[in-house]
């Protein structure tokens, strides 16, 4: 069941800073991400959302693949796995099936999930196994220093699209929805508080939840594509490049041109895989 955010332990309305330390592993900061990288903003939103759900750290597992975003599990004090490029959802599938009690979060990126791990991604959506897949989408391979990814927009520059990408980009949300994910949302690092709420909803959802999180890679994508600094990237791509679902309802098609929708884009109810498996075992043994 999904509910509104009500369980906040440290609401921002009270103007008290959130204490991240109970969720972080001691002595691991500063993290490896570059100055201005949005991944840290996403991580903080996630930790606040986790706190709001009240899920115990022992019951949380985070599984990642390879890439900048996949370094997230090293910092969080959950049960964590840093696996192979593209394979996070496959590892997570085995873990969750073996121990359905765990709430499994997959931390992955646009290259990791959409290219090398594309097959695992769509099949995870199809199975509707209870897991929250976070795609840190910065439109580039950061760890290997700036190659084009399946979400690099057309005409944008990377080290492997030096004259502008000629490939159309994947829409992660459309892909997830079509593949069968029962919760599909988009957020941005710029809208960090809204993202926190979306993450909370994703965590509370029972089934495969996919959140496409737009964040910025100033080191490669920003530099190659002539953004002055990360703030300009956040303003132009994350703020001006998106509209919330509520705003979009009031805008004309012309105004929506080129903008990505933010918020919960799809939600449906379908038998969760582990529940289905339990039914099967009951039927066979009963």
């Amino acid at each position: 069941m999904t509910t509104q955010v009500t369980a906040r332990t440290v609401p921002y309305k009270e103007k008290k800073p959130f204490d991240y330390s109970p969720f972080l592993r001691k002595g691991k900061l500063p993290h490896i991400w570059c100055a201005g990288c949005g991944h840290g903003i996403v991580l903080k939103s996630l930790l606040r959302a986790v706190d709001a759900t009240g899920i115990a750290k022992d019951d949380l597992a985070m599984v990642s693949g390879i890439g900048c975003s996949s370094r997230t599990p090293g910092y969080v004090d959950f049960n964590t796995m840093h696996t192979l490029h593209g394979r996070a959802t496959a590892f997570a599938t085995g873990l969750k099936l073996a121990k359905p009690r765990l709430k499994v979060i997959v931390a992955t990126g646009d290259g990791d999930a959409m290219a090398i791990g594309g097959n695992h991604f769509i099949h995870a959506c199809r199975r509707n196994m209870d897991m929250l897949i976070l795609v840190y989408n910065n439109y580039i391979y950061g760890m290997t220093s700036g190659q084009a990814s399946p979400t690099t927009p057309e005409e944008k520059i990377s080290t492997t699209s030096r004259y502008g990408s000629i490939e159309p980009a994947f829409d992660i949300c459309e892909l997830a929805k079509t593949a069968g994910a029962t919760f599909v949302a988009r957020g941005t690092a710029y809208h960090a508080q809204e993202l926190e709420k979306t993450l909370y909803e994703g965590l509370m959802h029972r089934g495969t939840a996919v959140i496409d999180i737009l964040d910025s890679c100033p080191t490669y994508y920003g530099r190659f594509n002539k953004y002055k600094n990360v703030a300009e990237m956040m303003d132009k791509i994350e703020k001006d490049g998106t509209v919330s679902v509520a705003q979009a309802a009031k805008l004309s098609p012309e105004k929506l041109e080129g903008k990505q929708l933010r918020g919960i884009l799809h939600r449906s109810e379908r038998l969760e895989y582990c529940d289905g498996y339990k039914n099967l075992v009951d039927r066979v043994t009963g």
Binding site: K15, P17, F18, Y20, G40, I41, A192
Partner: peptide, 19 residues
């Protein structure tokens, strides 16, 4: 003004605002 926007958007866990 204690809006905490700096904290919320700081990627590095480096800034916090207290009353």
């Amino acid at each position: 003004i204690g809006c905490q926007l700096c904290d919320i958007r700081c990627p590095d866990f480096a800034i916090q605002v207290f009353p």
